[in-house]
Amino acid sequence: MPTNVRVIHPPDFLRARADGQVDLEMGKDLLQQVAAAAEPLGAYEVLIDIRDAVGRLTPDEVHELAGSLIQFRRTFLHKTAVLCPRDRFDNARFFSLLAASYGFRNIRAFLSYEDAMEWLMSPDQD
């Protein structure tokens, strides 16, 4: 599955784009690639764009994927926007809720690029 990760300055944010058939291993690989790209950065935000991906993970697979975030704790404690099409919004939102149960409270699902970027660039609200 092709994945394109770019780093754009300033402020730093990572954009990971997935296309092709969705499966659990692809999801885990994508999270690992984002974490590897984030390693040398200080402050950054993450945008994961799955609008061109095909298919859907089962609820059990979404749960396992959310649990795999623990391996990359440092990366995903930053804001992470998951940009998805309307037909997969429920899965992406479920992922963000499960991620929050693992302590990752800054992961959110979005339908529009503009809304995702607005949230990523907004100051943290504590």
Results as ranks from 00 to 15, higher is better:
Q21Y: 00
V82S: 00
F13N: 07
M26H: 03
T75F: 12
F104C: 00
H9R: 15
L120V: 10
A100Y: 08
G55H: 03
D87S: 12
A18G: 07
D87N: 14
H78D: 03
F95Y: 14
L30F: 10
A92K: 01
D87A: 11
L77K: 08
H9S: 15
W119Q: 09
F13C: 09
F76G: 02
F94Y: 13
F89Y: 15
Y113T: 12
D12M: 10
L47Y: 00
P59E: 03
L97V: 07
L24W: 00
L65M: 14
D19P: 02
A16V: 10
D29W: 12
A36D: 14
L24R: 02
G103F: 12
L31M: 08
P59S: 09
F94L: 15
L83N: 02
G27Q: 03
E118D: 04
A43K: 04
E61R: 06
F89S: 08
A36M: 15
D19K: 03
L120F: 09
A36V: 12
S112H: 13
Y102M: 09
Y113H: 13
R6L: 09
H78A: 02
D52R: 10
E114Y: 14
L77H: 13
M117D: 05
F95E: 03
L98M: 12
H63A: 05
W119R: 04
P40V: 00
L57H: 07
N4A: 03
D23W: 02
R108E: 11
I8S: 05
A37F: 10
H78F: 04
V5D: 03
A43C: 07
V54L: 15
N4I: 04
E39P: 08
R56H: 01
P123Q: 06
F104I: 00
Y44Q: 11
I8E: 07
S112R: 15
V5S: 01
D60N: 14
M1I: 09
R108F: 06
L98W: 02
G55V: 07
L120H: 00
Y44A: 13
D115A: 12
R15I: 14
E45C: 12
E45R: 15
L65D: 01
F72P: 08
E118L: 14
E114H: 15
E39R: 15
K28M: 12
F72W: 15
W119A: 06
A81E: 08
A99W: 05
P10R: 14
I8M: 09
L69F: 12
L24D: 00
L69V: 10
Y102W: 14
M117I: 13
F13M: 12
S122Y: 10
Y113S: 08
N106K: 11
A35L: 07
F76T: 13
V7S: 13
A43R: 09
M121C: 10
T3M: 09
H63F: 01
